[in-house]
Design a binder for these strands. Structure first.
Length: 425
RNA sequence: GGAGGGGUGGCAGAGUGGUUGAAUGCGGCGGUCUUGAAAACCGUUGUGGGUUAUGCUCACCGGGGGUUCGAAUCCCUCCCCCUCCGCCA
């Protein structure tokens, strides 16, 4: 959510950003509702001031034994007017808020303007030293490998739950678990994050706080009986840990890392890039969340990105980094890097992580503040998060990059102490 | 699920329907004292909104609604927390 005052004072900037982000926010309606609201407020507050003043006089008159009937009669009508105007204010406020929460965050000035993913800017490409782009055999894709080695079972997953719910079997399950443990430990030990194991079902306020609601409500699994949502990412519960709180400056930067399964309905996105792990309804992810001082958030974004990349360096998985253009940037983000890992079988890059700075957009929605040490004033924190990383896409890259000509898969060195075996097949 | 108790400022904790935005304590800030610090003492200290703005003003005591000229205080409703009972991996 943007600051209403900012929109009032910079409507052109906001209009431009809504357009660049391919969003639909109605800035003019907001300006007009804001104007209505302020003029109504002035009117009703004048009446309330009068009411408050008289309310102090009445007990005095009564105490003095004087008659207050005239004042009481006047107040009766004043009170009715206030009630009517308050209702009008409430309606205008509701409408205003409805529009306000649909205005996307402003892209940072360093974000390239663009219409679609085609306009994203590649900022880095990395290959391990011994990497051979051209293998001397035709690599199997992760589906073929999964079936041959009996480590992934998409058919049975479909039987149990539906398409997009993979079953990990045997060494596949162990490898997945190893990957999660490895990544979590890495962030805790090497990067100083505090581990969080969050609830997987969250309430409406939490979903609103991080911005999934209302825009993406259709993409969320929803438990109607209890008004709870299955989390699409651990970002939601972890960021909301400090909703409605005031942190002290010494607590910053807050650095949390947590593993969770992620649930996404992916409504309306079937067909395209949807086979196997490329699009699933449930997947595992280690998420990093930071809450930082506003003046440090862009530094922290670079650090966050590097924290995620370090994993790929150790696992020796080729990757590239994209700086998302305005048109591909998510609703709440001000700046975002995507990390994509290489799939030799698909011969393309697969998104394995997004690292974003939300500035104070989420913090304003969720009311997460900190108290400045220097003047004791409160201010919204900046929130950031990044996958570190999503296992499903990473698993594709590991299986395909580490396969041998015989169709076996070597377990990457750093994962071996977690799996207890060195090769699958 | 049943029965009871409770949600008040950064924290703890008072609060007969009428100068209560809210006692008191802690904490914070400023000062006196001191070589310095502590202690003691004095003062000060919430957030958000509107405004033709050294000011004036409105709202906020878990959320929402109601009664009233006037609500932290009374009523309804929802949420959350605690205790006991029941159920349970």
């Amino acid at each position: 959510m943007l600051d209403l005052k900012f929109i009032r004072e910079n409507p052109e900037i906001v209009r431009k950003s809504v357009e660049n982000k391919n969003e639909k926010g109605n800035v003019d309606e907001i300006l007009s509702l804001d104007k209505d609201r302020r003029s109504l407020l002035q009117e009703v507050e004048e009446l309330k001031a009068r009411r408050n003043q008289v309310s102090k006089e009445i007990p005095k008159l009564k105490k003095a034994g004087e008659n207050a009937d005239d004042l009481l009669a006047e107040m009766k009508t004043v009170s009715d007017d206030i009630k009517r105007l308050d209702e009008e204010v409430r309606q205008v406020n509701d409408k205003l808020r409805l529009h306000l929460i649909r205005i996307p965050n402003l892209p940072h000035e360093s974000v390239p303007v663009g219409k679609s993913a085609d306009d994203n800017v590649e900022t880095k490409v990395w290959y391990p030293d011994d990497f051979n782009a051209e293998k001397d055999f035709t690599p199997m894709d992760h589906l073929q490998l999964g079936k041959k080695l009996n480590i992934l079972d998409f058919e049975r997953g479909a039987k149990i739950s539906g398409t997009g719910f993979p079953v990990y079997v045997g060494k596949g399950a162990t490898l997945e678990r190893a990957l999660i443990n490895y990544m979590i430990n890495f962030h805790i030990e090497k990067h100083g994050y505090t581990e969080i194991m969050p609830p997987l079902l969250v309430n409406r306020d939490s979903m609103f706080g991080t911005g999934q609601i209302p825009k993406l409500e259709e993409d969320m699994y929803f438990m109607e009986k209890d008004d709870l949502f299955a989390i699409p990412t651990a970002e939601v519960p972890i960021t909301n840990m400090h909703r409605e709180e005031i942190l002290s400056e010494e607590q910053l930067p807050v650095k949390y890392a947590g593993y969770s399964p992620c649930f996404r309905r992916e409504a309306g996105s079937h067909g395209k890039e949807s086979k196997g792990f490329l699009r699933v309804h449930q997947f595992n992810k280690v998420e990093m969340v930071k809450m930082v001082r506003p003046d440090s958030s862009y530094e922290e974004l670079e650090l966050l990105l590097n924290d995620a990349l370090d994993i790929l360096h150790e696992l020796k998985i080729p990757y590239r980094v994209l700086l998302l253009c305005t048109g591909d940037l998510s609703f709440a983000a001000a700046k975002c890097y995507d990390i994509e890992t290489w799939s030799p079988a698909e011969k393309k890059w697969l998104e394995a992580s997004s690292c974003s700075n939300f500035e104070d957009f989420q913090a304003r929605r969720a009311n997460i503040r900190y108290r400045r040490a220097e003047d004791k004033k409160t201010e919204f924190v900046h929130t950031l998060n990044g996958s570190g990383l999503a296992t499903s896409r990473l698993m594709v890259s590991i299986l395909e990059n580490y396969q041998t000509p015989e169709g076996k898969v070597i377990v990457p060195k750093p994962l071996q102490k977690y799996t207890g075996f060195e090769i699958i097949g």
